[in-house]
């Protein structure tokens, strides 16, 4: 008896869902003038695991995982990636990730050195701040496997970054994506320069 009721309700629900998928898809395609066509509305950001398209919604474990929105609610926002400004979050101690597996009080050594890289054209020059990076990383994350710690030794191009090399090892994967041009290209050229 019980199982019959369960099955009946489940099938009605499933039918409704399938129907709704079609209606939804049809509407989305039919309306070329939908508002903010290319902008992901906030409601679709940071989906909970069970509806993010990669977790199996029927697995028990999926439902035990924390939905990202729960964690991100109090963190500073950004326009892309996780929609969290992680460097601001750590700077303002809104997140305090451990730098040592066992010792919650261990302090990472933060290294305050800026490197400016000039680029051709009217694109602003790149400022690389060691400080924001060493709040998360250790020298050995990057040196010498990704960057040789020597002036002039590293040929970095956007092509290589887009191929997932150099900065692209992290940026575009976990750190803010390369679409955020101005967060790196942040030092405008002097006005009198051609």
């Amino acid at each position: 008896m019980i199982s019959l009721r369960t099955r009946a309700i489940t099938s009605i629900g499933l039918l409704a869902s399938i129907l709704a998928v079609f209606v939804h898809a049809a509407v989305a395609q039919d309306n070329p003038n939908a508002f903010n066509r290319l902008m992901k509305p906030p409601s679709e950001r940071n989906a909970p695991p069970e509806s993010d398209g990669i977790h199996d919604p029927t697995a028990d474990g999926t439902l035990m995982l924390q939905p990202p929105q729960e964690s991100f609610a109090g963190l500073p926002k950004s326009r892309s990636g996780n929609y969290v400004n992680w460097s601001k979050a750590i700077e303002n101690e809104l997140v305090t990730p451990r730098s040592d597996i066992h010792d919650p009080d261990a302090q990472a050594i933060v290294f305050d050195l800026n490197i400016i890289r000039e680029v051709k054209g009217s694109m602003p020059d790149v400022v690389y701040p060691h400080k924001q990076h060493t709040q998360w990383l250790d020298c050995s994350n990057c040196h010498p496997a990704i960057f040789i710690p020597m002036k002039g030794a590293n040929q970095i191009s956007m092509a290589s970054i887009l191929m997932g090399e150099k900065c692209g090892v992290c940026h575009g994967k976990v750190a803010f994506p390369v679409s955020e041009c101005r967060r790196c290209h942040s030092k405008p050229k002097p006005v009198d320069q051609p």
Partner: peptide
């Protein structure tokens, strides 16, 4: 979730 499911895996 099914009807409004859009595959937006979390970044990273």
């Amino acid at each position: 979730a099914l009807p409004i499911m859009v595959a937006w895996a979390e970044y990273g």
